[in-house]
Amino acid sequence: MKTKLSFSTALLLTVPPVLWAGNAIVGRMVRDAVPPMTLNLLRWAIALLILLPLGRAALRPGSGVLANWRRYSLLGLFGIGLYNSLQYLALQSSTPINVTLVAAGMPVWMLLVGRLFFGARVRRKQIAGALLSIAGVLVVLCRGDLGQLAALRLVAGDLYMILATIAWSFYSWLLMQQRDVPGLRADWAAFLLAQVGYGVLWCAALSGAEAASAGIDVAWSWPLAAALLYVAIGPVHRRHALLGRRVMRAGPTLGSFFINLTPLFTALLSSSFLGEPPHLYHALAFLLIVGGIAVSAR
């Protein structure tokens, strides 16, 4: 599969990491106000209500939403149910920068999932690009001091984020397959509504399991309501609308390299909202990550 990286595609690929960074910051801020699975359910329930008038084509007879229920159900499971629930669960015990750094290992998982489950070819330049990007991640993890890597310890949240990243890799490859299926792919709102409809069912099941095991105690407040609106409106619609276009245009493996920009945007947002300024090693990490993108795109 031949991939193409134009300026407009690069712009589409850059916006989602900014929104993902904001989502990680907000998810960390409200971790004591609402349980993670319930947070994800509320987020997508609000998104579903907003999408209903925009994606009403999905509700028409013959739209293929019911006929292709297995395909949409899998997209909803991996992209909405598992990925986001695991991310919010990770933010219970890990910091936003750690969560986004673990997620930056996605190129490796994307290559592995594509090769093992979708028969995708792995090229040497893709491997080289992945190694450069991972080097950038390691620079941030060790704060510019390679000696700290030996003492690095992953917490439970980091492990949950690894599982989330694997789930997103499956979602991206399934999304690539969807472009060859007639139906809603030309209408992003209807296509997203079909996924969210099934995804909310998965979210409800996960929230129900959470309630059965630990109970649900939501500390309602205006800041929490504002946070829910942000995670539902901002990262949901803009991210997925842009994501669908960028994955179908550039391919899931190349697109995954741009996700590695998320930790850098998270560092900038952390400086603004949490008082944690970026450092020189962030600039070095940025160069390595962008270098990985350039090598993979050639």
Rank of each mutant, 00 (worst) to 15 (best):
L116A: 05
A47H: 04
Q92H: 00
R28E: 06
G215T: 10
R249I: 03
V155K: 14
G114A: 01
T9I: 14
G197A: 01
T253L: 11
R298H: 09
F257G: 03
V139I: 10
L193S: 03
M37Q: 14
T262A: 12
I25C: 06
S271W: 12
P263W: 08
W220R: 03
R71D: 14
M1C: 06
H282V: 03
L242F: 11
L112G: 00
Y83E: 03
L54E: 08
G27W: 03
P235W: 00
M29T: 11
F273Y: 09
V102H: 00
A297K: 00
L175V: 02
T100G: 08
A10R: 02
L284F: 15
L174H: 02
R71P: 05
W109E: 14
V295T: 02
A21V: 12
L175W: 06
G27L: 01
G27D: 01
R249Q: 15
Y88K: 02
A189C: 08
I166D: 07
F78W: 09
I80K: 11
A241C: 06
S169Q: 00
L152D: 03
M110A: 14
K125D: 13
Q126D: 10
I216Y: 12
L284N: 07
K4Q: 14
F286S: 13
L41W: 08
T14P: 01
L41D: 06
V137M: 15
G199E: 11
L242I: 04
H237Q: 09
F273V: 05
K125A: 08
P17E: 07
C203D: 15
A241R: 05
L268M: 13
R298V: 03
L42R: 13
F118P: 00
L138A: 15
